[in-house]
Simulated assay, not measured.
Amino acid sequence: MSAAAGAVLDARGGQAARREHILDAAEACFVRNGFHRSTMQDLAREAGMSPGNIYRYFESKEAVVLGLADRERARGGALVERLEREGDRRGALLGIIERYFLAITRETAVLRVEIWSEANRNPDIAAMVVRSEEEARLWFTQTLAALAVSPACDPVALYGAMGPLMKGIIIERAILPDYDPAPSVAHLLGLIEAGLEGRLPAAHGNETDR
């Protein structure tokens, strides 16, 4: 590799590291002050950079939010890939539930709720949320279909029953400092097992037909 090519790679690596640093600073600001009370100047101060440098990497606060969402999607995809490579689909499903619901930090939950709230006002963020939701729905339904132990299992209805419970865990974790997600996660796992065995409660099964 030539010296010039090496310098280009080093510069790209430095840019990626600075983007990550800015996203970390933005996450801290959004969790502490909320999306609307956080300014680009606040993000720059948290990152120890000038506002001008922040704008070199993100043109707006909305672009920062999209960057945070893209980073989380990439991390989730890498986690799924690693879990499936190390074990089986059941292990991957349990690993995802542990990471995103049982072990979720309050900071992560607060940020998720902030993004959901902003989706009501910003069409770009709304489109990103819809895309993420669709990706999650597709992965879960395919995984549930692969794990079904009864022909009576309806993966679509099962995921429809899981969705409100999963979102509820995140919201409770965000608004209640001492919230323990373990009981709700246990209920979620019980619901999954019942659904895989074709024993999904009728009320849940009917909801997807309306």
Rank of each mutant, 00 (worst) to 15 (best):
A7K: 10
A25Y: 03
S184W: 04
K61R: 15
F101L: 14
V80A: 04
N122M: 05
A202Y: 00
D24Y: 02
L191I: 08
I54P: 01
V129F: 03
L189I: 14
L68N: 01
D124L: 13
A186R: 13
A148F: 07
P151L: 13
S38W: 06
A109P: 00
S2N: 14
F30T: 07
E27Y: 03
P201C: 09
Q41T: 15
R32I: 02
T141P: 02
R89P: 03
E172Q: 12
L9T: 15
G34D: 08
H204R: 06
A16G: 06
T105F: 01
F35V: 15
D180Y: 07
V80N: 04
R19F: 03
R89I: 07
V8N: 00
N120F: 14
A17C: 02
Q41M: 09
H21D: 07
A7Q: 14
E114R: 03
A28Y: 05
R45N: 11
H204L: 10
R19C: 04
K167L: 13
V80I: 15
R89L: 15
M162S: 08
L66H: 02
I54K: 03
R106A: 06
R112V: 06
H21Y: 01
V110K: 01
S117C: 06
E81R: 12
M162P: 03
G48R: 08
E62H: 02
I170E: 00
E133H: 12
L111C: 03
L158K: 08
Q15W: 08
P151K: 05
R112M: 06
L43P: 01
L165E: 04
A4M: 11
A78I: 10
L93S: 00
R32D: 15
L83F: 05
A127M: 13
I22K: 01
E81G: 06
Y159E: 08
R37A: 12
R82N: 02
R12P: 00
D70H: 11
A145I: 07
E118Y: 11
H204S: 12
A119E: 09
R199K: 15
G34T: 12
I54L: 15
T208N: 05
F30H: 05
A174Y: 00
P177V: 02
P155N: 07
L176Q: 09
I175F: 10
